[in-house]
Computed example of a mutant assay.
Amino acid sequence: MRILYLASGIPVPGTLGGSIHTLEVARGLAQRGHDVHVVAASRELPLSHLRLRPMRRLAGRPYSGFTLYQQDLPKLLSLLGVAAVIRLVRSLRPDLVIERYYNFAGAGMIAARRLGIPAILEVNALMVDPPEIAKRRLDDALGGPFRRWAERQCQWADRIVTPLHTTVPASIPRTKIVELPWGANVEMFIPPAGPPPGPPNIVFIGSFRAWHGVQDFVRAARLLIERGHPYRFTLIGDGPERAAAETLAAPYAQQFTFTGAVPHERLPELLAQAHLGVAPFNTAPHPALRAAGFFWSPLKIYEYMAAGLPVVTAAIPPLNAIIREGTEGALFREGDIADLAAAIERVLADPAAAFAMGQRARARVVAEFSWQRHCAELEQIGITLRQHYQQRVAAP
């Protein structure tokens, strides 16, 4: 199939979770033999970066097995590029359009509907915000235009792909929704034959934001250091809480390494030097996660598993179904610093058992949570939709 995949405002290449997701889906579909064309951004742009004359045509270039078109518009103004997207769709005549949902995007859904092409809407976050969010209050005050546009995109899509169906408005038929988790590139992450030498190295990957639990991680690390453990702690990523995390770690700076944001290609090398991966998610600061459940598909957990690491994460659904206590790692009570420290101690108490957990984690992610499996299922959805469209056209 020829597939057009739109990811408005997402930088490709990039270090954001959305950047990795877009790249892996595009590359995975291309590796399955499809002619893939991706519309993304070259970088994140502020609202002040407004093109007075939006680009009329999108120029593609070969990239990582697919064709990449970079449409540099501020994310909030994504729909200004709809004319260029429609022209691209008319030129390519794709068999399938996939669009990554964003409140102020939708050019792919518009083009697919106008030109009669099967369409998949990919939803990775709550589409209608809970009342605590300022954008929801603004939308309510305006009479609900954001909610109506979200619902309209869902209505236009032939299928909606999401990690958790509660991200989609309740007005949309459940039969239209396919739950499909993210994954890890199991060919990129290759686990070592044995644990790396030296004292245990515990790694955190992620955006340094409150709900990723980076400060909880540092506080738990301090407890462990104060109990006499010779552990080292590596924190990979960046974000608004990095300065606070570094300040918390400062009294024991010799046992902490902050790498900052790194290219995704470096992660296999960094994880190969680790003994344990931690994903200390804390949903308390995130109203949408509290309202709809944990709808994020945990990329960092899958990549820890692919690298052969045991994992410590919060005991909340669906994380407690991905990581099982004593099998692929350990679980702790969400937001409980002491319990997080205790979970890390449980895993690392027996190095041989910890390594075996990592091997089981690797086997499970290969079987159930790889990008390769994700793309195979996405491909099947696309093939089915295309067949339905062909039958509809052929019907008298």
Rank of each mutant, 00 (worst) to 15 (best):
Y252N: 08
I10V: 08
A338D: 01
K75M: 11
A376K: 11
I190F: 01
I3Y: 11
A30C: 08
P181K: 12
F189V: 06
I3R: 15
E328T: 06
G382Q: 09
L6F: 03
R364A: 04
L223R: 09
V203E: 12
A330I: 11
G382P: 06
V311P: 04
R266W: 08
N124W: 04
T167I: 10
G144P: 03
S297P: 09
R90K: 15
R43K: 13
V262W: 13
G60I: 13
N124K: 01
A119D: 01
E132P: 01
S370V: 15
Y101G: 02
A141L: 02
P195A: 14
P118T: 08
I120Y: 05
A111D: 00
Q391Y: 09
L223S: 06
E265Y: 02
G9H: 07
P54H: 10
A279S: 10
V36N: 07
A30F: 08
Q359T: 10
I301V: 15
A244C: 07
S207E: 03
V278M: 08
A245P: 12
L276H: 14
V312Q: 02
A279L: 09
H388D: 14
D139K: 09
G28N: 14
G293D: 08
R333A: 14
Q387V: 11
I172K: 07
K135I: 04
A376D: 11
D339T: 11
G18I: 08
P118Q: 10
L271A: 10
S297E: 10
Q372I: 07
F281P: 02
L223K: 01
E122Q: 02
R392V: 06
E379Q: 15
A361Q: 03
L79Q: 05
L52V: 12
R113H: 11
L348N: 00
A84K: 03
I381W: 05
S297K: 13
Q372C: 07
V347Y: 13
R159G: 00
Y304I: 11
F281C: 05
H229I: 04
G60K: 15
W149N: 03
L77G: 09
G326I: 14
I160G: 03
P251W: 11
F217T: 05
V168R: 05
W149P: 00
I20V: 13
I177K: 09
T22D: 00
A353N: 00
S207P: 01
G183E: 03
A157T: 02
A353K: 10
I160P: 12
E179W: 00
L142A: 11
L68I: 13
V168P: 04
L164C: 00
V311C: 11
A288S: 12
R114W: 13
D139P: 10
A83L: 12
I190A: 07
M109Y: 00
E44M: 15
R147H: 05
P13R: 13
M109T: 01
I301M: 10
G198W: 08
N320A: 13
T234Y: 05
P318I: 03
L348Y: 06
S91Y: 06
A363E: 14
L138F: 01
F204S: 12
G206H: 08
Q254M: 13
M55F: 06
W371I: 07
I133N: 10
V89A: 07
R148T: 02
L45M: 12
R209H: 01
F104M: 11
